[in-house]
Amino acid sequence: MDSAPSLADLPPGSTGRLLGYRSTDSAYLRFRELGLLPGTAFTVVRRAPLGDPIEISIGGALLSIRRDQAAHIAVEADSTASGTAVSR
């Protein structure tokens, strides 16, 4: 997980799965409660016009996450740029 890219690294359009959190901050419990659990498939939809935050799609929901917090989320990017995420 340490060598894995973070959610903040992925360009818009990429898809992948969450691996875990690199921080034990209790703030990330809320991320989990919102469904950002290890194994969850996501799509990076876009970045805000000023580059931050980023918008991701998980299970049909759109979430805005600041890049500094996304940097603590380790992910595994899909190698095939399929474009759209398979929701469930």
Binding site: D25, P53, L62
Partner: peptide, 12 residues
Amino acid sequence: GESSIHIMELPT
């Protein structure tokens, strides 16, 4: 206190 959570839903 605890760090603030900056995650926001973009509703349909």
